[in-house]
């Protein structure tokens, strides 16, 4: 449990470690594509951490990185094929950023620092924590960008075809009476939102850190 929370807050991959920024910036113009992207990374991270921690003793030190990349690449291809078959609209929305999970520094970084050193159980817990942390961060950015940028919110649009939840259709896209700030939906809005959020996150951590020092 401690490992999971550590991954969500103290080592949050987006706001603290600043890793895997390409998908963070690219797919967060819609709330739905943001959490789906986060979930895909979570799945890839979970399986690759699991496999790597099992076979870590079989891999020679000198070819470690190529082997890890191959393992990660295999899982990314599996996820990509599954999405293409069952949720083609989302596959199209995520575009090249889905195969780019292969070179996502979070997944390779976790393989190198955690899966290749710690036990299987620890690696899985770490993957879950980091994956959830990443998904939450992406969802938050996607939520802010969509709600203020286009004044709509897409909860389930592409997914509704698969889940066949026609009843819930009315929450697919909600129009909100907020004045849209168009810039947030554009590429530059991605940089702006992330920059401001990281700054706010830093400020909160600084205050907490100072509080601890004073109480000591």
């Amino acid at each position: 449990m401690k490992t999971i929370i550590n991954g969500i807050i103290k080592e949050n991959p987006t706001f603290v470690l600043l890793l895997g920024l390409c998908p963070t910036l690219a797919v967060t113009n819609k709330f739905e594509s943001s959490y789906i992207m986060g979930f895909c990374v979570l799945v890839v991270l979970l399986f690759s951490n699991f496999v790597i921690s099992i076979i870590k003793k079989l891999i020679p030190e000198s070819v470690r990185i190529p082997v890890y990349i191959l393992i990660i690449g295999t899982f990314v291809t599996i996820v990509e094929l599954l999405l293409k078959e069952y949720v083609p609209t989302l596959h199209k929305a995520l575009g090249i950023y889905l195969p780019l999970i292969v070179v996502n520094c979070i997944v390779l970084g976790r393989a190198l620092t955690v899966a290749s050193k710690k036990s299987v159980g620890q690696s899985i817990l770490d993957a879950i924590g980091i994956g959830i942390g990443f998904t939450l961060a992406l969802s938050l950015i996607g939520f802010i960008r969509e709600i203020f940028g286009t004044n709509t919110i897409t909860l389930i649009d592409g997914l509704s075809e698969v889940l066949e939840i026609g009843k819930l259709k009315y929450i697919n896209v909600i129009n909100l009476p907020i004045f849209p700030i168009n810039i947030l939906a554009s590429p530059s809005g991605a940089f702006l939102t992330l920059g401001l959020l990281v700054g706010i996150f830093n400020a909160i951590r600084n205050r907490k850190g100072r509080g601890k020092l004073e109480s000591n």
Partner: peptide
């Protein structure tokens, strides 16, 4: 620069302005 914005945050905000110009 305010302390909490030093480093990456201000870099990202600068990038936002550059992205606006380039677009």
């Amino acid at each position: 620069i305010p302390r909490c914005f030093k480093g990456a945050p201000i870099a990202l905000i600068t990038a936002a302005i550059m992205a606006l110009l380039f677009s």
